[in-house]
Simulated assay, not measured.
Amino acid sequence: MKKTKLIFFAVSFLTCSATSYANSIAPQSVEAFVTAAQKDKIVNVSPNSKGLDVVIVDSTNVMDAKLSESLPIYDQAIFGTPRNYQIQMITKVKRWTEENKTRLKDASKNVAKAVTYQITEVPAIVINQQYVVYGDTVSSAVNKWREAVKNGEIK
């Protein structure tokens, strides 16, 4: 009877320890590839989480839409000739581009990163630059990764 209890205790302890270990391991990096519209729903962890990088894949489209909204429609009473309107709009776009140079460069890097990982759809969560989960939240993707580590599917 004592031997059975001891074996039961040992198995229970090892099972609990393995589960605790799997839940305690944390990925080195988590990259969430999302659209601007998906960000709040998919990134359901603190944006300051260690190793988390949120990549907005449509940021250039969002920036372009904001720029387009800021450009006035041609009105002869305001701009005079169409040529004068064109000159003013070109000046405004050049200024905007200069002011947003860093953001545009970052947006290009984000697209290149998605291409490098061969991301085929968003949302996509890339863990430790090797494990990809599509269509899920960050926390759920990390839990799937932990389960895969626990099962020996990945290192």
Rank of each mutant, 00 (worst) to 15 (best):
Leu6Trp: 12
Phe8Asn: 03
Ala10Ile: 12
Phe13Ile: 09
Ala18Asn: 07
Thr19Glu: 02
Thr19Lys: 00
Ser20His: 11
Ala22Asn: 02
Ala22Tyr: 00
Ala22Lys: 03
Ile25Leu: 03
Ile25His: 04
Pro27Trp: 02
Glu31Thr: 03
Thr35Val: 07
Asn44Ile: 05
Asn44Tyr: 06
Asn44Gln: 05
Val45Ala: 03
Ser46Thr: 08
Ser46His: 04
Pro47Ser: 03
Lys50Asn: 11
Lys50Arg: 02
Leu52Arg: 07
Asp53Ala: 01
Val57Thr: 15
Val57Arg: 10
Ser59Trp: 15
Ser59Glu: 14
Thr60Asp: 12
Asn61Trp: 04
Lys66Met: 11
Ser68Cys: 00
Ser68Met: 15
Leu71Ala: 09
Ala77Pro: 00
Ile78Lys: 11
Ile78Ala: 13
Phe79Pro: 04
Phe79Tyr: 14
Gly80Ser: 03
Arg83Asp: 09
Asn84Cys: 03
Gln86Ser: 05
Ile87Lys: 12
Gln88Ala: 09
Ile90Cys: 00
Ile90Pro: 00
Thr91Arg: 14
Lys92Ser: 15
Val93Ile: 15
Arg95Met: 01
Arg95Gly: 08
Thr97Ser: 10
Glu99Tyr: 10
Asn100Phe: 02
Lys105Tyr: 04
Lys105Met: 10
Ala107Leu: 02
Ser108Arg: 10
Lys109Gln: 15
Val111Lys: 13
Ala112Leu: 02
Ala112Asn: 03
Lys113His: 07
Val115Arg: 11
Tyr117Phe: 13
Tyr117Val: 05
Tyr117Ala: 14
Gln118Pro: 07
Gln118Leu: 09
Gln118Asn: 14
Ile119Gln: 02
Thr120Leu: 12
Glu121Gly: 03
Val122Asp: 03
Ile125Arg: 06
Val126Asp: 11
Ile127Pro: 01
Ile127Ser: 04
Asn128Ile: 06
Asn128His: 07
Gln129Thr: 13
Tyr131Ser: 01
Tyr131Met: 05
Val132His: 09
Tyr134Glu: 11
Gly135Tyr: 03
Ser139Glu: 15
Ala141Arg: 05
Asn143Phe: 01
Asn143Leu: 10
Trp145Pro: 05
Trp145Ser: 04
Arg146Lys: 12
Glu147Gln: 08
Gly152Met: 07
Gly152His: 06
Ile154Leu: 09
